Computed example of a mutant assay.
Amino acid sequence: MKSLQMDSDARRGLSQISLPFAFSILLLAAPLAILLAMSFWTQDFLTLDRTFTVANFKEAWTNPIYRTLMLRSLKISIIVTMLTVGLAYPAAYYMSFVAPNNRKALLVFLITIPFWTSYLMRIFLWKVILGFNGVVNGSLMGLGIIDTPLDWISYNQFAVTITLSHAWLPFAVLPIFVVMEKVNRSYLEAAQDLGDTPFQRFRRITLPLSMPGVVAATLIVFIPTIGDYVTPKLVGGPGGLMIANMIEVQFKNANNAPLGAALALSALVLVSSVAGIYVWLNRRYLKSEGAA
């Protein structure tokens, strides 16, 4: 009887996961498999040569242009991630531990307001703000602080970093806030009764228990930003282009989809490696905190 019940539960579980599993295979695994196969081919204008070759990966990792774009993309993504998570953590802490309970829903609502507008519209607004004759330069010149417009705040890596940080900040705040809401306040009260200072309570209790939210926020921001091509194209200028822009060029203008596939997979491997190292270091940190 027990065996029949286990078989029934197994069939029910398989029926529940079969559709999501098929959906994942169709929309994730299959495109990646096609991309992987294509990366070992070559293309002559519109003709694909399916002869196996690793020339595309060799080109992707030895050509100085592609290597520069890859490293630039990694640098911008790391800076954007550090900036957004660094700003998101105090905001989430205030929302969870300082703000009254009857205002938390309002604060979450305010965090989601940027989602009401189009992503493209927000990028164009940053072009207006940071442009040569934009809001920042116009205000500084009107106040007499500068005589000529600042040319280093637009169409470069700085503009890309600022725009991406603004766009992804809400995605960093919300997961940290959700995890902080689950922190048992009785732990903090017990630590306070035992004589811990506010900083000690934060370092020993709040920070370690909120790290899953920090990890989630970091991955949510880091992984998509390294593949963003709209923001660099609109506000980056020649010095702010990223690897995704080169991938777009290879697939569209250059008619070299195999090289574009190799660049995309190379970026995927790079992102996965950095994310894996980060998660591993975070686990070591949590273990050391737990041992202490």
Results as ranks from 00 to 15, higher is better:
88 A>T: 13
49 D>H: 13
208 P>C: 02
110 L>R: 10
209 L>K: 04
209 L>M: 05
170 P>M: 05
193 D>M: 03
260 G>S: 05
150 L>K: 06
288 S>D: 09
234 L>H: 02
269 V>S: 08
190 A>W: 07
277 I>L: 10
68 T>E: 14
145 I>M: 09
278 Y>V: 08
29 A>T: 13
213 G>Q: 13
236 G>S: 02
18 S>Y: 03
127 K>I: 00
266 S>H: 09
73 S>Q: 12
125 L>G: 11
141 M>C: 06
43 Q>P: 14
112 T>I: 05
133 N>V: 00
270 L>S: 11
213 G>E: 14
125 L>D: 02
100 P>G: 05
25 I>N: 08
72 R>T: 10
191 A>C: 10
7 D>N: 13
285 Y>Q: 15
205 I>C: 01
97 F>D: 00
197 T>K: 03
113 I>E: 08
6 M>R: 12
278 Y>C: 05
276 G>W: 01
241 L>Q: 11
83 L>T: 15
101 N>M: 01
274 V>L: 10
221 V>T: 14
180 M>R: 09
166 H>A: 02
214 V>P: 09
234 L>V: 09
225 T>F: 00
234 L>W: 00
117 T>M: 01
124 F>L: 05
251 F>A: 03
24 S>L: 11
174 L>A: 11
171 F>C: 02
154 S>R: 09
36 L>M: 10
278 Y>D: 09
2 K>Y: 06
151 D>F: 00
42 T>Q: 15
243 I>F: 01
232 P>I: 04
170 P>D: 10
83 L>P: 15
169 L>W: 01
49 D>S: 13
